[in-house]
Design a protein around this nucleic acid. Structure first.
Lengths: 148, 148
DNA sequence: TATTGTTATACTCTATAACTATA
DNA sequence: TATAGTTATAGAGTATAACAATA
C-alpha cells in the first residue's frame, strides 16, 4: 500500500507551515536592512550586555560565527564591543541607541507580519494554537536521531 | 519600550516548533539511509511516473538539482530512468519495487515520529491543531509563499 | 530556435580546528 | 595550562548559467 502523502501528515503540515511562517518573519526582520541572525543578536543584547561567549551560548551558535555578526552590527553602529577591564580577554557587548531604534522598527514590522499570518484567527484561537504548539515536541531528549 | 521577545511571539513559536518538528521528521526519513530530499522524491514518484521536468516542477526545485538526487536513487536501485520513446529528450522516471519497499519502512518510521511528537495531544486536539494550521498564512498574496 | 537533461561555477551557511592574547 | 576571541579552511546546500542532444 502507498505510504501516506506528505500533505496528509500533521508533522509535515507543522513543518511546512513553520517554514512559511519563518520565511515571512525573516522578511519582516529585514526591514532594517539586517540579516535575521543580526536581528536575533540584537534581541538578545536588548536583555542586557554580555560577553561574546555567553551571548553565543544563549543563541546556541558557535562563538566563531558570532564574530562576523558582531562585525556587521558594529560596522553599522548598532552594537559595540569593549574590553572587560576585569578580564582583558573578554569583550563586553552592548546594543547602542541606534541599535535599539532599529530593533523597534523591526518589532513593528514583525507585529504587522503576525497580524497578516494570524489575522484569520480570533484571539482565543491564537491562544489555543499557542497552547497546542507548546505541547508538541515535549520531550526532545532521548533520541538525537543522528540525522548527522 | 523594549521589543517583544522572540519566545513571546506566536510567529516565532510556530517557526521554531516547525523547525524542531521538521528535524524529527527528517531523522525518521533517514531510517532507510536516504537523504530527506531523496525520500521526498520517492514520495512524489509513488504517485506515478513522470518526466524529470515535471517532477522538478512538482517538487519546486530546479531540474539541475534533481539530477544528483536521481543519480543517488538510481545507484541504490530505488528508482529508474528510461528514455521516452515518443520524445527522446525526455527521461521517464519510475520508482522500483525496492524503492516502494524503502518508502514503506520510512512511512512506519514517520508514523512513530508523529506519535512521539503529537502523542501528548488527543485525536481531537490533533485535528484542532491541523485545522488551525490550515488557517495560517491563508493569504500569501503579495509575498512569494508558494508551498503546494 | 526551443526544450530536456546535464555539467560547471559560484555563493551562502555552517562546522571545525588552529591561532593570539590574555589569565 | 586554560580561556576568550579571531581567523582559516572545508563541507553541505543551493542558485545560476552554459552546454549537448533532440525536437
Amino acid at each position: 500500500m502507498a505510504a501516506a502523502l506528505p500533505n496528509d501528515r500533521l508533522g509535515f503540515l507543522l513543518s511546512f507551515r513553520g517554514e512559511l511562517t519563518g520565511a515571512r518573519i525573516r522578511a519582516a526582520l529585514g526591514v532594517a536592512g539586517l540579516h535575521p541572525r543580526s536581528v536575533m543578536t540584537l534581541m538578545q543584547l536588548a536583555s542586557g550586555a554580555t560577553s561574546q561567549r555567553d551571548l553565543a551560548a544563549a543563541m546556541e551558535i558557535d562563538p566563531s560565527q558570532l564574530v562576523a555578526i558582531l562585525n556587521e552590527l558594529e560596522g553599522q553602529g548598532l552594537a559595540e564591543r569593549r574590553r572587560d577591564p576585569a578580564d582583558r580577554r573578554r569583550h563586553i557587548v552592548e546594543i547602542t541607541e541606534t541599535g535599539a531604534a532599529a530593533l523597534e522598527r523591526v518589532d513593528t514590522a514583525v507585529n504587522a507580519a503576525e497580524r497578516e499570518l494570524f489575522g484569520g484567527l480570533t484571539d482565543a484561537e491564537q491562544a489555543l494554537l499557542r497552547s497546542l504548539l507548546d505541547r508538541v515536541v515535549v520531550d526532545p531528549t532521548g533520541h538525537d536521531c543522528g540525522a548527522e
